[in-house]
Design a protein around this nucleic acid. Structure first.
Lengths: 338, 338
DNA sequence: CGCCTCCATTGAGACGTTTCAATCGCGATG
DNA sequence: CATCGCGATTGAAACGTCTCAATGGAGGCG
């Protein structure tokens, strides 16, 4: 079961090693006749080129890595999906890795990918990561930061304008008539969360007549949403928020369930909006108003930016920012006021 | 920005190349003093070992690959997660790849992983894949098939006894008093689906008094569930099923939503069970009775089996089958009969 | 004091590929 | 007929690492 290399193929086909290599990499440079002999030998021997050898010689691979906190999260999964599609068009493979929000795992995969000499890296993270990416970049592995805008002009990034998303959501809640507003989520250490709140505060402040309360959630899951909703239900009706902006859809879904189960009507008594437009936002019992960030062009933009960074040295605009879009559904349309 | 190699590190630390290599791989073989000098040089130079070189020399990597139809599907995501944890304990990294149920993508990643000379492969697939894995194995890359039991004794696999899962579900529905039963799902070309139905049929047949109808779903999503439920609602009550067994949780969730929205009470009027115990099964408005296949030991079993295959030549039992467990929740408990 | 052992250290060689300069063969040109 | 030019083909060198056999030095034993 000794590994069959290009050498055996060459011998078997009666040609030189270099010719086999040419056949593999520049097929047009090889005569038809030898090409056929070589292909026959490859098939017969079950030859699979060793990536190690090629990589060693070339110094680069044809693989890019995508590190996300949690690839199973539909948000990242969709990004991964569109990235994969675009990358596949461009002839490179994508390896996925879960950092599970752990700095250590993140570092570990950063190192593994660097050792593998991936051609480039796509990274989503809730943690501050620019310095680490700068170090990796300094050693020859470029990257695109996805989801948070990079501060350094040397670090390419593709992000969503979460301030705008927060603003749009609150403006919408105001427009359906809510005055007592609540922002549910946390921690503010996460830039995305802070930005959404910032946009929300701005919009609420500008309205003059509205109040915005910040309710901290234990975590950003359905369970967390239930706990928050339970706390809200314990309040007397006149101090309950009229419009709730949950920082993500899972929270919103949990809130929605618990409010509905308690007989409180959404959106008539409380309007509710989420964020991310995840798979279940539209599929929930009362379809959820939410903010949709991704679209088909997202992955394309990410991969193309990465390719630009990999090839050229300087990019016109390394910080691509997409404006998210409010998706209005039943959970806010029809707020009835007091 | 020339790549810094072990050579520069050695020169910088004033030791031989071999000593640096020893330090990296067998740190105990190197004197404290030189170890420190070497570490200093590594940090100073930002040295990252080239995996290509190591791999080329060793012939194997320290990476395993996991190919799944869709890593974002919570089912595979959880498997991936537990696999990653176990692999990490054992000192190997896991690269994930999405085949998107496409045979081509599957083949492409199989090839890429083989070229990368991953140490082993974990593969979940809805497609027949044993021959392809056999070919890959013949060339030195072993694998574990996850989710479907392998037929060949040479192909290791870890799977769930879906026949048992189907049987348990129907037996439970019978035990709460349902007689007119329906199995919702398809297509039967997928072994997991066929097995679940087989178990369901057996159990229904043995009861004597129950009937089991098969309702084909357009797809296995929430939307598909809604369509099925809408069709059921159009029937007159006396021919509606009393107990529904949906082949996965998404379908069940869609059914649940549509039935509830129409005012039909679950479980009082119709008992409903799903399959997979996905993240949302417990978190839905009416917690869903479902079949839980995975548990913490699953990933451990998969990885350990893969390691066995990678190291030894023969395994006592290459086909590990776990028995799934019925998780009874509110969506079936309390069926009231006619 | 001489010899042996043991351990840390060393440097050469090999892994499989690609590329580059050199060679070959052949038809065309002067 | 000699030469040239061009494309196809060749073989060697190089990429970065690990391992193995060999070296060197220190300490223990006779």
């Amino acid at each position: 079961m000794a590994r069959v290399g290009i050498r055996e193929v060459a011998a078997h086909a009666g040609v030189a090693i270099g010719t086999v290599s040419h056949y593999l990499n520049h097929p047009d440079k090889v005569s038809i006749e030898k090409a056929e002999r070589i292909q026959t030998a490859i098939d017969g021997l079950g030859f699979v080129p060793s990536n190690a050898g090629r990589q060693l010689r070339l110094g680069v691979s044809t693989v890019i890595g995508y590190i996300a906190p949690d690839v199973s999260n539909p948000h990242f999964a969709e990004i991964a999906e569109s990235v994969e599609r675009r990358a596949s068009d461009l002839g490179v493979s994508v390896f996925l890795a879960n950092s599970h929000r752990s700095r250590e795992r993140e570092d570990a995969y950063l190192r593994v990918f660097e050792q593998q000499q991936v051609r480039g890296l796509i990274v989503s993270s809730h943690l501050p990561i620019e310095d680490r990416l700068a170090a990796v970049r300094g050693r020859g592995t470029p990257s695109v930061l996805v989801g948070q805008a990079a501060r350094s002009p040397d670090q390419a990034s593709v992000s969503l304008d979460d301030v705008s998303g927060g603003r749009q959501t609150i403006e919408h809640l105001l427009s359906v008539g809510c005055r007592r507003l609540a922002f549910v989520g946390g921690p503010l250490g996460i830039p995305q969360v802070a930005d959404r709140l910032a946009g929300a505060s701005e919009a609420a402040g500008e309205s003059g007549s509205a109040t915005l309360e910040v309710i901290n959630a234990p975590d950003r899951t359905i369970r967390g949403g239930r706990e928050v909703a339970a706390a809200i239900l314990r309040r007397s009706p006149e101090v309950r928020p009229e419009g709730i902006f949950a920082v993500n859809d899972l929270l919103a879904l949990g809130i929605l369930q618990t409010l509905s189960a308690a007989g409180l009507r959404v959106p008539e008594e409380i309007a509710l909006a989420g964020y991310d437009d995840n798979e279940f936002a539209e599929a929930s019992l009362i379809p959820l108003t939410t903010v949709k960030g991704r679209h088909d062009g997202f992955g394309v933009a990410v991969v193309d930016l990465l390719f630009d960074v990999m090839e050229r040295k300087s990019i016109a605009d390394p910080h691509r920012v997409f404006k998210p879009e409010l998706v209005v559904r039943a959970s806010t349309l029809g707020f009835a006021g007091r």
